[in-house]
Amino acid sequence: MPAVLLRVNGTTHELDLEPQVSLLDALREHLGLTGTKKGCDQGACGACTVLADGVRVNACLALAVQYEGREITTIEGVASPLQAAFVAHDGFQCGYCTSGQICSAIGMLAEHGDDVPSAVTEHLAAGGVELTDAEIRERMSGNLCRCGAYNGIVAAIKEVAGADAAARVPAEAAR
C-alpha cells in the first residue's frame, strides 16, 4: 500500500492507505480521530466537516490521498470560543453533528472575513456583507442537525462573530 503523509492538527502521520480511503475514514479508522463524524458518507449532511488549510470541506467526499500536503484541522485540533458558546447557547443535543457544525462555523467566519458572499446576499458587488441571522442560516445550511438545535447554533455563532467584530473595530479605528 502506498504511504500517504497526512498532516492533521499540526502532526504529520505516515499512513498506509489505499487510494479509495476517504479523508473521513482515514481520520476515524486509521488515526483514531473519531471526533469527525460520518452521517451520510455522501456530502449530504455536513457531519464530517473539517478544515483543509482553514477551508471547510466534507471529509467524506475527499480521498485522503488528495489531501496530502494540506493542513487538516479536525475538532480535536480546534480551540475556539465557539465551543463554549455552543454549550452556553445549547447549540446541540445528541452531539453527533456538533463537530461538523463547529468546524463549519469556523470556516464560515473565515469566508465571511474574506468577503465571500452567499445565496441570500442582497448586493453581490457591495462587499462587507453584514452577518445577519439570514446570512448565518444560509451559510450554515450544509450542516444538518436532526435534533433541531439550529437556533442555539445561530446564537452561538452570532455571539462569537459579534465579539470578533467588536474586537476588530477598535483595531481599525486606531489606524
Binding site: 452556553a88 445549547d90 453527533y96
Partner: peptide, 17 residues
C-alpha cells in the same frame, strides 16, 4: 449547561462506532 457539553464540543464524546 449540559454536563457533557465540553465532551460533545471537543470531539471527545465517543459513539458506538
Amino acid at each position: 449547561d449540559r454536563v457533557d457539553g465540553q465532551a460533545k464540543t471537543s470531539g471527545q464524546a465517543r459513539f458506538a462506532a
